[in-house]
Design a binder for these strands. Structure first.
Lengths: 341, 341
DNA sequence: CTGAAAGCGCTTACAG
DNA sequence: CTGAAAGCGCTTACAG
């Protein structure tokens, strides 16, 4: 047992060997005792843990990654942080993962499948222990990268059909139907759908709106307004103005996201459009401010924190090679009726 | 030159040795040619690069980190993502760093120095190549951790006095003075300061407000309203109501952040307080929506993207052991006068 | 249940 | 300018 060899390249950091020397066991026993990987006699385990604590030992993530072929990183791919939605998802992911000893490696895709693919390639270099992605739509190459890596992956925000695909989310289509039906119950006849960004989930909401209107024979494709620009309050105001100028018969607008709807509400104030008397306005996601703006915005509350937490927990199960109760977790949604409808 | 040895633990990944074999040089030459670390004959460099490209070689970050004692990670510590401010800072950091081949490791401190210290400890395990932190105030232990690590660090949002401390930001105090002076020029006499969260930068703004008022003998400490709760639109509304009920003589309120001011503006609508006739309202940061809300919010526009980019670039210089032009970069700020004052 | 040996894929430090 | 050797700090795979 050589004490403190002064090699030229030593990092000065406390190593497994140091703990082993103090505990008077072999390094591999320290490794096993600390990870709980294989049964180690309980008296040895105690000695090891005491020694590790005494020396303030923490394993080197790089060495561990190199030897085990898995880092303690989890790749997290989300479309955008400026959409507040994903901030909530991310915060609860980080919290859950950190607690379990994992580091989140965050990649912002900007709703671009090629950027997502590129990020995935970069992240995969780090041999992440797990992957968290947004939605089910992506490039074939990206799908293949995930598949071939053999690394566990959970999809967020939507619900997958196949039992081979792990997902945590809710039915975007169903939620949009619920909101549209609420507008119908309020007696609205000409219900427009206004969408920006046009990402897959937005299109699913459009689908829900269409289905609900078709069911009561009120669907008119001229009522659908779409804009590829990113969603924003400013754009919502512009869209409101455009829509009402284009078709004054419209008596309700369902915006695909709350920021658009909030911007529309502010624009309605300027344009002296009475909400909800003349026009009902609804949004989606229940973002910050939607309850404070005048009148309060009717919307669908989506459980972002719950999605992040459930997805992270499912991934934790998968990374530990434990069984997951179900590959598809539906966290639901809630209709929030306020003054704007 | 052994071709493709099938060792039991091989990862299947293309290694330096594979590239060396193809280029008919030693692995170390490949390493040097690819990193440009030391002069390598240009014909060898060409052969190596061609071989690397052909095999699709990418270095293993874990192996590199273990051998060199530095990962390609940069630790980024920010207070909160739900404050939109930091989303902008973060996006531009990520963009700049990724482009240079570095990965951001994001830690959210929740404005808590102990959490920051804990995150720092965790991040330091990964031997980051650089550190980006928010503000200058932190625990002594955190400061020492950074110092002892010897890892280059840049401080964001504020301007450091000492030339030993690298920083990118602007004078929070000065900016608050500018805004307060604007209110004075508008003829306001009883200018309140309303603050939440009470983080160091908020307190610096309070200081600027105090200085500006003292200069014209209008300072009254009863005009200062502080609340430790996190800043939010809802809180802004509550604070407005409280302040006006408490002291109806107040003719202007300077909120330390736009979300508070936006909430106050919405509350003023409900409470039928005329803005700016009866009461001027101003904010700080120029967040999303401040230009759209009615009346437009007068505020200080802070260059978040510029801070993120400049901080990342300075860190890049430091990590490459290049000289930095100046340790303290002042990105300035801009007074945005709108309808609310 | 425990350990000695080998290896993960790089870079450092030393020679030449 | 180039390379053989050793080492970074762990874990895997094989024995016993």
């Amino acid at each position: 047992m050589k004490p403190n060899k002064t090699r030229s390249r030593a990092t000065g950091r406390v190593t497994l060997a140091d703990v082993a020397a103090l505990a008077k066991v072999s390094p591999i026993t320290v490794s096993r005792a600390l990870r709980g990987e294989r049964a180690v006699a309980s008296d040895l385990t105690d000695r090891v843990k005491t020694a590790a604590l005494k020396l303030g030992y923490t394993p080197d993530p790089a060495a561990r990654a190199l030897a085990s072929r898995h880092s303690d990183h989890v790749a997290v791919l989300i479309p955008m942080l400026s959409n507040n939605l994903f901030v909530d998802v991310l915060e609860s992911i980080q919290k859950t993962l950190r607690h379990a000893g994992y580091q989140s490696l965050i990649g912002i895709t900007h709703y671009d499948t090629r950027e997502e693919e590129q990020l995935l390639r970069e992240q995969l270099q780090h041999r992440p222990a797990g992957i968290l992605v947004t939605g089910l739509d992506r490039s074939d190459a990206a799908r293949e990268l995930i598949e071939k890596s053999g690394i566990p992956c959970v999809h967020m925000m939507e619900l997958a059909q196949s039992p081979d695909v792990n997902s945590v989310g809710f039915s975007q289509t169903q939620a949009a139907m619920t909101l549209t039906e609420h507008l119908l119950q309020r007696g609205r006849q000409r219900i427009a759908f206004a969408a920006a960004q046009l990402d897959p989930r937005t299109m699913q909401r459009l689908d829900g709106w269409r289905k609900a209107l078709k069911a009561v024979k009120l669907y008119d494709k001229a009522l659908s307004y779409t804009n590829k620009s990113p969603s924003s309050m400013a754009l919502g105001g512009e869209m409101l103005q455009h829509i009402m100028a284009n078709d004054p018969s419209i008596d309700a607008i369902f915006f695909c996201n709350d920021d658009l709807a909030q911007g529309a509400l502010l624009a309605a104030q300027r344009l002296k459009i009475k909400v909800p008397q003349q026009l009902a306005i609804a949004g989606f996601n229940d973002l910050t401010g939607s309850d404070l703006i005048g009148p309060g915005l009717t919307t669908i509350r989506t459980p972002r924190a719950a999605i992040g937490e459930a997805a992270a927990k499912m991934l934790l199960n998968l990374m530990r090679e434990e069984d997951v109760p179900t590959p598809s977790v539906d966290v639901g949604y809630e209709l929030m009726v306020r003054g704007s409808t």
